[in-house]
Protein backbone atom coordinates (compact mmCIF):
# COMPACT_ATOMS: atom_id res chain seq x y z
CA UNK A 1 0.00 0.00 0.00
CA UNK A 2 1.20 3.49 -0.77
CA UNK A 3 2.14 5.04 2.52
CA UNK A 4 3.92 8.36 2.39
CA UNK A 5 6.67 8.81 4.91
CA UNK A 6 7.39 11.97 6.86
CA UNK A 7 10.86 12.06 8.37
CA UNK A 8 11.36 12.82 12.03
CA UNK A 9 12.39 11.41 15.38
CA UNK A 10 11.91 7.69 15.69
CA UNK A 11 9.11 7.00 18.17
CA UNK A 12 8.31 3.62 16.72
CA UNK A 13 5.92 2.88 13.92
CA UNK A 14 3.31 5.60 13.64
CA UNK A 15 0.66 5.15 11.00
CA UNK A 16 -2.01 7.70 10.14
CA UNK A 17 -5.10 6.76 8.13
CA UNK A 18 -6.55 9.93 6.70
CA UNK A 19 -8.73 11.48 3.99
CA UNK A 20 -7.32 14.13 1.67
CA UNK A 21 -10.39 16.36 2.13
CA UNK A 22 -10.80 16.08 5.89
CA UNK A 23 -9.61 19.06 7.86
CA UNK A 24 -9.30 17.20 11.19
CA UNK A 25 -7.03 14.75 9.32
CA UNK A 26 -4.91 17.63 8.03
CA UNK A 27 -4.66 19.05 11.52
CA UNK A 28 -3.53 15.67 12.86
CA UNK A 29 -0.89 15.40 10.16
CA UNK A 30 0.35 18.93 10.89
CA UNK A 31 0.37 18.19 14.59
CA UNK A 32 2.57 15.11 14.10
CA UNK A 33 4.84 17.20 11.90
CA UNK A 34 5.11 19.86 14.58
CA UNK A 35 5.92 17.23 17.20
CA UNK A 36 8.81 16.29 14.94
CA UNK A 37 8.13 12.56 14.93
CA UNK A 38 8.56 10.35 11.90
CA UNK A 39 5.34 8.78 10.60
CA UNK A 40 3.63 7.15 7.67
CA UNK A 41 0.29 8.31 6.33
CA UNK A 42 -2.15 7.31 3.65
CA UNK A 43 -5.07 9.21 2.12
CA UNK A 44 -7.53 6.36 1.76
CA UNK A 45 -9.87 8.35 -0.49
CA UNK A 46 -7.12 8.63 -3.09
CA UNK A 47 -6.62 4.85 -3.29
CA UNK A 48 -8.47 2.70 -5.78
CA UNK A 49 -9.83 -0.83 -5.94
CA UNK A 50 -7.86 -3.53 -4.13
CA UNK A 51 -5.54 -1.04 -2.48
CA UNK A 52 -8.43 0.88 -1.00
CA UNK A 53 -10.04 -2.33 0.22
CA UNK A 54 -6.89 -3.56 1.88
CA UNK A 55 -6.38 -0.18 3.58
CA UNK A 56 -9.96 -0.26 4.87
CA UNK A 57 -9.56 -3.86 6.07
CA UNK A 58 -6.45 -2.87 7.98
CA UNK A 59 -8.16 0.20 9.42
CA UNK A 60 -11.14 -1.95 10.40
CA UNK A 61 -8.93 -3.98 12.76
CA UNK A 62 -8.19 -0.86 14.76
CA UNK A 63 -11.32 1.13 14.27
CA UNK A 64 -14.42 -0.80 13.23
CA UNK A 65 -16.20 2.50 12.65
CA UNK A 66 -13.63 3.13 9.94
CA UNK A 67 -13.54 6.83 10.66
CA UNK A 68 -10.77 9.32 10.00
CA UNK A 69 -8.26 10.32 11.20
CA UNK A 70 -7.14 7.08 12.85
CA UNK A 71 -3.66 6.95 14.27
CA UNK A 72 -1.99 3.64 15.12
CA UNK A 73 1.08 3.76 17.30
CA UNK A 74 3.51 0.85 17.35
CA UNK A 75 0.79 -1.60 16.45
CA UNK A 76 -0.47 -1.21 20.02
CA UNK A 77 -2.39 1.95 20.56
CA UNK A 78 -5.07 3.51 18.41
CA UNK A 79 -6.25 7.10 18.65
CA UNK A 80 -9.39 7.98 16.75
CA UNK A 81 -9.98 11.62 15.85
CA UNK A 82 -7.78 14.67 16.29
CA UNK A 83 -7.12 14.36 20.02
CA UNK A 84 -4.10 16.56 20.58
CA UNK A 85 -3.56 15.71 24.24
CA UNK A 86 -3.87 11.97 23.74
CA UNK A 87 -1.49 12.02 20.81
CA UNK A 88 1.04 14.11 22.69
CA UNK A 89 0.81 11.81 25.70
CA UNK A 90 1.19 8.66 23.62
CA UNK A 91 4.25 10.00 21.81
CA UNK A 92 6.08 11.39 24.79
Amino acid sequence: MKFEHVDGQDRGKIVLYALSTCVWCKRTKQFLGNLGVGFDYVFVDLLQGAEKESAMAELDKWNPRRSFPTLVINGEKCIIGFKEDEIKEALR
Partner: peptide, 21 residues
Protein backbone atom coordinates in the same frame (compact mmCIF):
# COMPACT_ATOMS: atom_id res chain seq x y z
CA UNK B 1 -13.73 22.15 4.04
CA UNK B 2 -15.34 24.07 1.19
CA UNK B 3 -12.43 23.00 -1.04
CA UNK B 4 -13.10 19.44 0.14
CA UNK B 5 -16.76 19.71 -0.85
CA UNK B 6 -15.73 20.91 -4.30
CA UNK B 7 -13.14 18.13 -4.65
CA UNK B 8 -15.87 15.60 -3.82
CA UNK B 9 -18.31 17.18 -6.24
CA UNK B 10 -15.68 16.88 -8.94
CA UNK B 11 -14.82 13.25 -8.33
CA UNK B 12 -18.20 11.88 -7.21
CA UNK B 13 -20.71 14.27 -8.76
CA UNK B 14 -22.11 15.24 -5.36
CA UNK B 15 -20.84 17.22 -2.40
CA UNK B 16 -20.15 14.32 -0.08
CA UNK B 17 -18.96 15.07 3.45
CA UNK B 18 -15.24 15.92 3.36
CA UNK B 19 -14.54 14.04 6.61
CA UNK B 20 -16.15 10.71 5.71
CA UNK B 21 -15.16 8.19 3.09
Amino acid sequence: LVEGLLANEKRYGHQACPCRL
